[in-house]
């Protein structure tokens, strides 16, 4: 234990001399992890797929070829890499376009929940008292549900659609961010520089914005990356249950649920969308783990 402590303190002092920013230091340790780099590569691959989808995909999302029965449920071939579905649509093209939907839902829902969650967490942690009690109680109640169940409840109120699935996923993740920020605020609040800032008469809003928020950023980034992985699975699950994407949207979960009837005759309709979900989620998980080790070693449990 001791040598580690010593080397840590040496690190700190050299840091001051060379002025290596904390972000740069985090990047250095992130770069060392092979798993994190593989994860990042996977994520970048899917982002490129999403951005350049129209250039990559040979066909559109809904080019049906119903008249030619040999093109319906056709197995993978050099022309149709992942085969075709029951409408004769090219599954490879649909999987490529699906990356847009899944990544968009993942990023947007997590940004939404991070923003709302951080806001609630900050006012709850900073102001304390009854505001804290009310917000924390609401978080407790939301966390008392298995998350997919709460999402189902919200979507059944709002009505099934991809947009509502996104909103539901954003809502169920709010307490995770809220609690994280709240505890961070509680610990930062007691730091001497905050007390000093208060003493010189700095306004609350400025303290929150300039000091507390930047200090809470790294756990939010870590949590955010891991939350994208869960959000993508949850969105696919909701679509799979018929509560998310609607035809002809090439959402991966929806493609899986459509593929169920053809499991025997055309398993490729099921294999590829599922692989896409798994790889994307794996990428975000690996990247998130790497970020956690690099940015916030204390969070590792």
């Amino acid at each position: 234990m001791m040598p580690e402590l010593v080397s840590n303190s040496v690190d700190l002092s050299t840091k001051e001399e060379k002025v290596v920013g904390p972000w740069k230091e985090a990047w250095r340790s992130f770069r060392k992890s092979k798993a994190a780099l593989v994860g990042t590569a996977i994520v970048v691959f899917f982002i490129l797929l999403a951005v350049f989808g129209p250039l990559i995909a040979p066909e559109g999302i809904n080019e049906q070829k119903l008249q030619d029965s040999s093109l319906r449920l056709a197995p993978p071939s050099s022309e149709y890499w992942f085969g075709t579905d029951d409408f004769g649509r090219d599954i490879f093209s649909r999987v490529v376009y699906g990356a847009r939907i899944s990544l968009a839902v993942g990023f947007l829902s997590v940004i939404l929940s991070a923003v709302v969650g951080s806001f609630l967490g900050i006012i709850s942690g900073y102001y304390g008292r009854w505001i804290d009690t009310i917000i924390s109680r609401i978080f407790d109640i939301m966390l008392a549900f298995p998350s997919i169940l709460l999402a189902i409840a919200i979507v059944s109120i709002l009505g099934p659609s991809l947009q509502n699935a996104l909103i539901a996923i954003a809502i169920i993740n709010i307490p995770n961010f809220g609690r994280l920020i709240r505890s961070k605020v509680l610990s930062v609040k007691e730091e001497e520089y905050i007390v000093a800032a208060k003493a010189i008469g700095m306004k609350d809003s400025r303290i929150l914005w300039r000091h507390i928020l930047p200090n809470s950023l790294s756990p939010v980034i870590v949590q955010g990356t891991l939350a994208i992985a869960t959000a993508i699975i949850e969105a696919a699950a909701l679509s799979f249950l018929g509560l998310g994407a609607e035809a002809p949207q090439p959402e991966w979960g929806k493609m899986l649920s459509d593929a169920r009837v053809h499991l025997m005759t055309a398993p490729w309709t099921m294999i590829f969308p599922g692989l896409a979900i798994m790889l994307t989620v794996l990428g975000f998980n690996l990247m998130g783990d790497g970020l956690r080790d690099a940015l916030d070693p204390k969070m590792k449990n």
Binding site: A35, A229, I233, A236, A237, F240, G253, L256, A259, R260, L263, M264, P267, M270, I271, P273, G274, I277, M278, V281, L282, N285, L286
Partner: peptide
């Protein structure tokens, strides 16, 4: 184990069935 954490269970279920 790493892959197991990332696999969507509804896909795994379908693969098993197949």
């Amino acid at each position: 184990a790493l892959i197991g954490v990332s696999v969507p269970i509804f896909w795994l279920g379908l693969m098993e069935q197949w």
